[in-house]
Nucleic acid binder design. Structure first.
Lengths: 156, 156
DNA sequence: GTAAGTGGTTTTAATTTGAAACCATACGCG
DNA sequence: CGCGTATGGTTTCAAATTAAAACCACTTAC
C-alpha cells in the first residue's frame, strides 16, 4: 500500500522524506491543513480529487505521523484531520515551493498570490540558507557530512 | 504525457510547481544534479530506477525548463543533463526537505548525514522564514495576498 | 571483427489512479 | 415516524502510469 522506493539510497535524507510526501496531492493536502482545513469534505472540495484518493492520502499521512485523525471538535460524529508537530515542520518546505513557484512559474504580469507577513502586510523575505556565522550559502558552499549522534555509548 | 492536475486550483502557487516536481523521482534527480552528476548512466546508477522512467523524467525536467541537455563536455558523443537557473532555484526546497528529514525521519542515535558549511565544516542554520524586519514567521504569521505586478500598462 | 559500454526505446505486465456508483450513519423537519 | 439530504467514506472497474526486461544503435577497446 505504502509507496516504497526500494533502493539502497532510500535512506539518504532526501529520499526518505520524499517517500512520505513525494506525491502530487499530499503536499496540497498539507497546505490546505495549514490554511485551516480539517474535514474530509473540505479537503475534497478544495482540491477536487476523488474521494478514494483523498482517503488513501490521508491514511498515508496519518501512517507517516504527519497528520492525525482526532475525534471531533464541533460535536459532529466525524473525524477531523490535523497536522502533527512533524506535519507543522513542513512549513519551510511549503514556503520554499511557493517561493520557487512565484519566481519561475508566473509571467511577470500574471496575477498570482504572494506570501506576506500578516502583522505588517509586507512580503516575506526569500528563504536563504545561512552558515552559523551568517553567510548566505549556495549549493556549492555546502556538503553533506556523515554524523553519528554522540550518545552515552560514546565510550569504546 | 505530462502530468496535469486538472483543477481550478492548479494555479495556486503551490500546485503549479508540484505539477513539475511532484513525483518521487524528480527531486532525487535534481538532488543528484546538485551533487554534480550529469550523465544518464550516472543518474541511473545512483538512483537505481528503470531507464525508461529516467528518460521520461529527464524529458519532463527539460520540458519544464528545470534541466537542460547540453551536447557534451568530455568529447563523448552523448549528452549531459545540467540544471538551469530555474533548476538551481530549487536549492532551498531541497534543503528544506533534507532538514525536515533530519528532524523527523531519523532516530536520535541513527546514523545519517548532515548538511554542513563547506568553508567552516559546521552545520548550516535551520531554514527560517523571516519578515522584512527580521522576525521569524510561523504558519500563523503569514497570509497569502493576491498581487498584480505593476506593469507599464498600469494607466487605465 | 568482435566484445563490451553507453544511452536510450519498445514491449509487456503489474501497480496506481480516478470517476462513478454504492453504502452507512446522522440530521432536518413536516 | 418517514423521507430527503449531507457527510464520510468503500467498492468497482476502466484508464493511465510505472517498472522490469528485452531490444537496438552507436562507439570504443582490443
Amino acid at each position: 500500500m505504502v509507496k516504497r522506493i526500494s533502493h539502497k539510497n532510500s535512506s539518504c535524507g532526501v529520499a526518505r522524506p520524499l517517500d512520505a510526501i513525494g506525491d502530487g496531492w499530499t503536499l496540497l493536502i498539507v497546505r490546505d491543513a495549514f490554511d485551516g482545513l480539517r474535514r474530509f469534505g473540505e479537503f475534497q472540495k478544495s482540491l477536487g480529487l476523488a474521494k478514494n484518493i483523498l482517503a488513501a492520502r490521508l491514511r498515508n499521512l496519518i501512517a507517516h505521523g504527519i497528520m492525525d485523525a482526532v475525534p471531533a471538535s464541533d460535536g459532529s460524529p466525524y473525524q477531523e484531520y490535523v497536522l502533527t508537530k512533524k506535519g507543522r515542520g513542513l512549513f519551510p518546505l511549503l514556503v520554499a515551493i511557493r517561493q520557487w513557484g512565484e519566481d519561475f512559474f508566473f509571467e511577470p504580469d500574471e496575477a498570482h498570490v504572494l506570501l506576506v507577513d500578516r502583522m505588517r502586510g509586507l512580503p516575506v523575505q526569500k528563504l536563504e540558507l545561512r552558515s552559523q556565522d551568517g553567510r548566505v550559502l549556495g549549493p556549492e558552499d555546502t556538503v553533506v557530512h556523515p554524523v553519528r549522534e554522540p550518545t552515552a555509548s560514546e565510550e569504546k
